[in-house]
Simulated scan of single mutants.
Amino acid sequence: MRTGPAFFPLTFLFALALAACGGGQEGAGKTPTPEAGFVKVHGETFTITSELPGRTTPYQVAQVRPQVNGIIEERLFKEGDEVEKGDPLYKIDDRLYKADVASARADLARAEATLKSTRLRAERFERLLEMNAVSQQEYDEAEAALGENRAQVAAARAALESARTNLDYTTLEAPISGRIGRSSVTAGALVTANQAEAMATIRQLDPIYVDLTQSARDLRRLREALENGELEKIGEDEARVTLLMEDGGEYKHEGVLQFSEYAVEESTGSVTLRALFPNPDDDLLPGMFVRAKLPEGERSDAILVPQKGVARDSTGQATAMVINENDQVERRNVTTERAVGNRWLIAEGLSSDDRLIVEGLQKIQPGMTVKPVNVNNGGDSNRGDNQ
């Protein structure tokens, strides 16, 4: 009669095991609703800018060349220094030119003395002609000689002025203010008037030009957008140009757009734009490669969304996942216009109040019901009515 008590515990344990298995299967059949982190799309005022490549160009450039022949006696500047307009730069041996001035001055004095004598003779002949003491021909010859001597005085005076000018040219002066580069000649070098090689170059760097290039196609598209009302023209006070240096840092001074070329470069299909920047510390040097942010127009209802909320399929089509009114996932084809930092500027496909999914994308599929979580509100679960 011991079999009764032994059989009861085994039966009881088996029943408990079956109950436990049944309860596990019932819990496993329940799938929790996946969460989807979203941001609420909204329109905002946005200034459309273009980032254009360019190079710096001096505001003014002057090459120093001699205007007379001679031997360089002295260089009067230090290479790399700032010079002012009119500062002496080189001294050429001027002994021959001083002698030319003295000779021209003597020629002028001789011509003036001859003129005085000829004028007195012509005056006497005029009085004698009235008394019929000289013939008309003699009087005419005296008048002609007077006119010739006057021309000789004028020529001698011009020769003296030319000699003085050449003497002045023996001191080469800075034609503009700016920073002077290296000298190609030293003391003792022979230079010739209007030679091909410049002795030095002066560049004015404050302010400084930045020549930018923009494709003619982009310029045409910008004008069409302005004409169609897609963009609003920005005010003159806001039409400032921001410069990015080679290392990606932003230049501390803003520039202004000066002009754009009215012709397209045939080889590149681009148009040149010129901006003017202050350069008080000489941070910008001629020939530097830079990039400039140039404002083009303003859009009052621009749609900007995080880049992580936009993906591309195998065909390259940009797509986005949004949550509809029933908390279901919808797939949208979108058109991206340009990248703005870590966001996309959307041209088509999204509108204000759309809930764009940016987190949990790997767990969802189109048509699936999800639990919306507004990531801009600290992760609270809601329908995104307050952005």
Rank of each mutant, 00 (worst) to 15 (best):
R217S: 11
P278I: 10
V241L: 09
R331I: 10
A122S: 14
L96M: 13
S267M: 05
N382V: 00
A6D: 10
S162I: 09
E232T: 13
N374F: 01
D313Q: 10
I357F: 02
L172M: 05
E161R: 12
A142D: 02
S117E: 11
E232Q: 14
T57G: 00
P207H: 08
A302T: 00
G188H: 04
F38P: 00
L212W: 04
G54V: 01
R223S: 09
S300R: 14
E123S: 11
V334C: 00
S215Y: 03
M321V: 02
L205G: 01
F77S: 08
C21V: 15
G384T: 01
A163V: 03
E265K: 11
M131Y: 14
E82L: 14
L18M: 12
L115Y: 11
T315M: 07
E224S: 13
D281R: 08
V134W: 01
K78F: 12
E238I: 03
F259N: 07
P175Y: 07
L285H: 08
L231T: 01
Q362A: 15
K363A: 09
A318G: 04
L219M: 15
R332N: 13
Q328Y: 04
A163S: 14
K40N: 08
A275R: 05
F38R: 01
K308S: 11
G309F: 02
G379Q: 06
Q307C: 04
G27D: 07
P366Q: 07
Y169G: 02
L13F: 14
D247G: 06
H253V: 04
E238W: 10
A193K: 05
L345E: 11
M321Y: 15
K371F: 05
G341H: 03
T319M: 12
A142R: 02
E161Q: 14
K308H: 09
G23D: 06
R332D: 11
V210R: 01
E296M: 15
T118E: 15
N279T: 08
V241F: 11
D168S: 15
P34W: 09
T268Y: 14
S117G: 13
A28Y: 08
E51G: 08
A99V: 08
